[in-house]
Each structure stands twice: as structure tokens, then as C-alpha cells.
């Protein structure tokens, strides 16, 4: 594209320097904290971190909830995206706006709204009592269920948006063609829609998974200290114990998990392609 490489390099240099000085360097220093000991370098901090049963619980809970949110949002997301792309253009725009709406509301306000809705005197419980499903209100707040609901609402739009743009790039007649050739809806999804939208699924899945893993406000407010996740644990270690070693261990774990999720999803996507 450029006449010589030098121009390209010169153009990218300011951004690269900016990122190096203000992002990679500080992150590198922070993360190296966990490997530094009085005598030299070691990975002992990681061993120590995973030896604690409490930390193990928090780690697996984070993995489980983020995975579950990504999975459920993919299922709901496909249905919603399929419906949206098949709408006439004006309603499609309107519907798309509705999907985006939660992203425009402050996460704090949105999460506090869940406190009201999920509470014992809240909308959900009153409904359940009114239809006679239960006499005593369920305790939803400060459980994993509450964190799951909050995270799902928070990140579902990202999945829908990724899938909608993937489906818009799908040949318009692919689904009809498959149906005419005798495929049932499951086969249409599995052999036509899924392979053609896998890029969107990888992007959406990575965004939702890493987002759920690193969200702070939702688990802090809806889960509290009884449902600690890695991010809330990180905050606790820094503000309460001034323990930057454990904090940088957690930060490193979060980064590794995010990259692994992305690589894994890409693998799954390409594995289907080559078959």
C-alpha cells in the first residue's frame, strides 16, 4: 500500500510508542511483581495462590460463571440475531437500538436496578408469590444466580451485535436453499448458519467471556463478599491487605484466561471449517 515500508512504520510509530510507554510497560512492571522475590525470580506466588482452597473456589466460580454466561448468551443471541436480520429494515434498526440500550445505561444504575428487581420484595419474587409458586420469597440476591443474571444482561448485547453482523454477511438465500433441499431446522443451524457465522460467534464469545470474567461492579453489588469472583478478590487484596503480589497473580490469571478463551474459540471455529 505504501511506496516504502518506512512511511508505514513512521505512521504506526506514535501509536506504538504510546501503547508501549503507557500500557505495556506499566502492565509489565505490575505483572512482574508476582515473579519477584527477595532472592531472585520465581513462580512461587502462583503456587501459593492456588494452594488456598478459597482461591481455588473463586477461580473455578469465575470460570464457571463466565463460561455459562457465554454459552447462554450464544443460545439466546442466535435466536435474537436470527429474528432481527429477518425483520424489515426499519424495524430492524429499531430493534437493534433496543438491544444496544442496556450498553448505554451506567452499569452502576443498571446493577442497582437488579437489586430492586431481584430483592425479596422485588418484582420477581412478588410475581412468584402471586402466581402461587411459592409462599416465602426466594433469596436470589447475593447468590451465584444473581451474578449470572446481572452478567447475562450486561453482555448479551455484545453477543447479539456480533451475531447480527455475522448473519448480515451470510448469503441471503442460504437458509431457504437448505430448507428446500430438505434440511430440518436443526440441520440448517448446525450445517449452514453456524459455519457461516462462526467468526461472529468467536468475537462475541470472547467479548462475553472476558467481559464476564473481568466485570467488577456486577459481582460486587449482586454477589457481595459471599460470592467472590477473581475481580472482586483482586480489589479486596489491594484495598484491604495492600497485597500487590496476589493482585498481580490474579491479573495475570485473568489475562491468560482471556487469551486462552480467544484461542480456544478460534480453534473450535477453524476445526469445523477444515472438516
Amino acid at each position: 500500500m505504501f511506496e516504502n515500508r518506512a512511511i508505514g512504520v513512521a505512521l504506526v510509530l506514535p501509536a506504538a510508542l504510546f501503547a508501549a510507554a503507557l500500557f505495556f510497560l506499566p502492565v509489565g512492571i505490575l505483572l512482574s511483581e508476582a515473579f519477584r522475590t527477595e532472592t531472585g525470580w520465581s513462580a512461587w506466588a502462583y503456587v501459593e495462590f492456588f494452594q488456598s482452597p478459597r482461591n481455588q473456589t473463586v477461580f473455578f466460580r469465575t470460570l464457571k460463571l463466565a463460561g455459562l454466561v457465554a454459552l447462554v448468551s450464544a443460545v439466546i443471541g442466535y435466536a435474537a440475531a436470527f429474528a432481527i436480520v429477518n425483520l424489515p429494515p426499519t424495524s430492524r434498526g429499531r430493534m437493534f437500538g433496543l438491544v444496544m440500550l442496556p450498553l448505554m445505561i451506567s452499569p452502576v444504575a443498571r446493577t442497582y436496578a437488579w437489586l430492586v428487581i431481584l430483592g425479596r420484595t422485588g418484582f420477581v419474587n412478588q410475581f412468584l408469590v402471586n402466581i402461587g409458586l411459592t409462599d416465602t420469597p426466594f433469596r436470589i440476591l447475593f447468590t451465584e444466580t444473581a451474578v449470572f443474571i446481572g452478567l447475562l444482561q450486561l453482555f448479551l448485547p455484545l453477543m447479539i451485535i456480533s451475531l447480527v453482523s455475522a448473519m448480515e454477511n451470510m448469503p441471503r438465500d442460504a437458509v431457504s436453499a437448505a430448507r428446500i433441499l430438505g434440511a430440518n431446522w436443526f440441520q440448517v443451524f448446525w450445517r449452514v448458519i453456524l459455519p457461516l457465522t462462526r467468526e461472529g460467534l468467536v468475537i462475541g464469545g470472547t467479548l462475553v467471556f472476558t467481559g464476564s470474567m473481568t466485570a467488577y461492579i456486577t459481582p460486587a453489588i449482586l454477589g457481595g463478599s459471599k460470592v467472590l469472583m477473581l475481580e472482586t478478590l483482586l480489589y479486596q487484596r489491594v484495598t484491604v491487605a495492600n497485597d500487590f503480589v496476589a493482585a498481580s497473580v490474579i491479573a495475570m490469571i485473568l489475562i491468560v484466561m482471556a487469551f486462552s478463551a480467544n484461542i480456544l474459540l478460534k480453534r473450535i471455529a477453524t476445526a469445523r471449517k477444515t472438516r
Binding site: Y112, G119, R120, T121, F142, G224, S225
Partner: peptide, 18 residues
Amino acid sequence: VTFYVRSSQLAQLMQQEE
């Protein structure tokens, strides 16, 4: 119900009869 960290959060829980 929970182990609270901020008293402002607690005030809301009391208000909501949690």
C-alpha cells in the same frame, strides 16, 4: 444475607426489607 462492605449499600438493603 450478606457481609457488607459499604454502609450505603446496607441502607438500601434495610429499605428494601432484605
